[in-house]
Write a protein that binds this DNA or RNA. Sequence first.
DNA 1: GTCTATATTAAGATAGAC
DNA 2: GTCTATCTTAATATAGAC
Lengths: 208, 208
Amino acid sequence: MTHPRRRLRPEQRRAEILDAALEVFAERGYRGASLAAVADKVGLTQQGLLHYFPGKDALLIEVLRRRDEVDSGAYTPSGNGLEMMEKLVTHNATLPGLVQSFTVLSADSVTDNHPAKEFFTERYRRTRETLAESIRREFGEEPPGGLTPEQAAALLVAVMDGLQLQWLLDPGEVDMAAVFHAFAGLLRSASPAAPPAPSSPTDHGYAG
Amino acid sequence: MTHPRRRLRPEQRRAEILDAALEVFAERGYRGASLAAVADKVGLTQQGLLHYFPGKDALLIEVLRRRDEVDSGAYTPSGNGLEMMEKLVTHNATLPGLVQSFTVLSADSVTDNHPAKEFFTERYRRTRETLAESIRREFGEEPPGGLTPEQAAALLVAVMDGLQLQWLLDPGEVDMAAVFHAFAGLLRSASPAAPPAPSSPTDHGYAG
DNA sequence: GTCTATATTAAGATAGAC
DNA sequence: GTCTATCTTAATATAGAC
């Protein structure tokens, strides 16, 4: 046995590492995570891992980018903006690990010199824009309750994020899907007269 | 000069340290913060600081507890639950540092073995309970939009938290006070007929 | 009450063997 | 491609001097 190690194509290895890294970052946050812990999970040493990624920062950014790509390919609910969000929240309620990673890392990212600060700023900006577009198609320039489409978008994302945090801390007390659904109902009922515009479902790629 | 150091009553010292610690925790998260950095801010060494607190965990918990006490004494907006929340959000929009500390640390607290996990779980539970009580007084058993009082409470807290995150990342793009105000308007407009019950303002002590 | 000194542990990163 | 070995830095914590 000249080559006792596990035979893996480089791309498989990288994917493995990225999955393991997401777990560790979710469990301990960016600063609390160690490369050695990630390496352990895939049966490598820290130095073996560093063959695939130049450093911790780059690993984090790649984890986040890849996750968005994969998720938006694997799960894109159909319907208008509000319906999509509702389905997404219900979907996320079955994936506490994934929810935790984005909840932890997005808040982490507001700290000083955090490597994912730009990533999350841009991601939220894009999400709001796409969602506002969708709201415009659905409700026109005046969505329910005197909100602008941009405000409604920020609000929807805020509700989703805020509920995730409470749900992670206390899953028995907070039913995030139920509350989000009720909130969606509130939005609809406040709507003057929603003209179901011909919608082309947009992938906003929002999974966290 | 037999005693060259700064003369401070122990309670002042402790207060100083707690303030400095909150800053450092907000800037770097719990795991990224170092006792030495906190000590530096008040002109002590790490070991000098440890004379006042047994360790990092205890320091964090004390920081959070004290902050809630001080804030609820210093700022308690009047009015019903919804009005109080609106005023609180407007108030918080002038205190990015404080908002950052609670945003960062609350999300941090969902990670494995985090010393503040219980603190935040209990804090959110209390906040929801108090807020639900206030909503009951204001709207009776059926608040706007088919929500239960408990759901409405979770929703309000979620909106506040979620907007804080987006605002911290992108203060130029997200006007959290404006969006929260619009959201409050949405809730009110969805209300069947809000009977202004005789309210005794309740301090829910929610500052983050 | 605060310091110096130090023990211990662990992190990220680099160099080079195989 | 992955390892061993090592450098460097930094963390919490303890012991004990002043």
